[in-house]
């Protein structure tokens, strides 16, 4: 690995200042993407800025009124062990326990997963389905970006030079709502999604009053399909209604063929995984009083 300097700022203003003064700096949270990229030469850095000493990036806070805020550097193993996350966001616990294996989950963060901006990132479709927003800080202050707008191309995102991700905010779950993320992989664990689907559903008197669907590994970025969720509004969650939404998700996808699957196979999986994710989200919404 090429030599670099290391800095571990203790506050957000310090980190923003450092980032602004060092154009070739790279931000380090869990390092499970960055250190691989630096070692392979795919990325370079003169300075690596470790953001884990910044309190705001390391906190998990939940309130039933405002929802969940997860610092950008919180590792998956802390998220999956958090009592309120287990109670209110079971799908988030699942996804955080599917990213890599036990050792990777000891380091990897949702914030890092988002900033790495891979089309196959497992946590992003669920964050989109849950209506999450990203809080970003930079030289000109703070701004909030809906997660579905964050990624712009494989490995690229809306972060401007000098900006860093502070935290992710997920609204409090509505009564009778449920969410899920399912991925298709040929093994049981430690794999990259051939196709993944995230879904959230809110029921009011047995009728769907809100639904959001997003996919991974089927487009240059994680793909939000608003039309698929809108097609479910004011409908009972019947097999036919879920299948119709799954077909809309399938039509929105533009997958490529690669070592993990052909485009045709992925298109087929889009409908299958969306339908299954919706079924699970509906079942959770029906249980969630």
């Amino acid at each position: 690995m090429k030599a670099f300097d290391y800095a571990a700022p203790a506050s957000l203003p310090e980190a923003v200042g450092l980032l602004a003064s060092q154009p070739s700096a790279r931000l380090l949270a869990g390092g499970t993407d960055l250190l691989v990229q630096l070692r392979s030469g795919r990325k370079e850095a003169d300075v690596v800025i470790d953001v884990k000493k910044i309190p705001e990036l390391n906190e998990i806070t939940f309130s039933p009124e405002t929802g969940l805020t997860v610092g950008a550097a919180v590792p998956c193993y802390r998220l999956t062990a958090h009592a309120a996350v287990q109670t209110h966001y079971p799908a988030l616990v699942e996804v955080a326990s599917w990213i890599g294996g036990t050792q990777i989950q000891g380091r990897a963060s949702l914030g890092g997963n988002l900033c790495n901006s891979a089309p196959s990132a497992d946590s992003i479709p669920l964050l989109i389905a849950l209506g999450a927003t990203a809080l970003v800080a930079g030289p000109s202050g703070r701004r909030t970006i809906p997660v579905e707008e964050f990624c712009t191309a494989p490995g690229r995102n809306q972060l401007a030079p000098g900006e860093l991700l502070v935290s992710l905010h997920i609204p409090a779950p509505a009564p009778h709502s449920g969410a899920s993320y399912l991925r298709f992989i040929p093994r049981n664990e430690m794999d990259i999604a051939v196709v993944g689907a995230g879904a959230s559903v809110t029921l009011t008197d047995g009728v769907i009053t809100a639904a959001r669907i997003a996919l991974s590994s089927v487009a240059p970025t994680p793909l939000f399909v608003p039309a698929a969720g809108e097609a479910l509004l004011n409908q009972a969650p019947t097999p036919a209604a879920l299948e119709a939404a799954a077909q809309i998700a399938q039509e929105a996808a533009s997958p490529i063929s690669d070592m993990r699957g052909t485009a045709a196979y992925r298109r087929h999986l889009c409908a299958v995984m969306t339908r299954r994710a919706l079924e699970l989200a509906v079942a959770r919404a029906q249980e969630n009083n």
């Binding site: 869990g30 390092g31 250190l35 050792q103 380091r107």
Partner: peptide, 16 residues
């Protein structure tokens, strides 16, 4: 084992 969890030490910097 690093603190309260296990990690792959190839993906941790010594300074961390």
């Amino acid at each position: 084992k690093l603190g309260d969890r296990i990690v792959t030490s190839c993906l941790v910097l010594g300074v961390e």
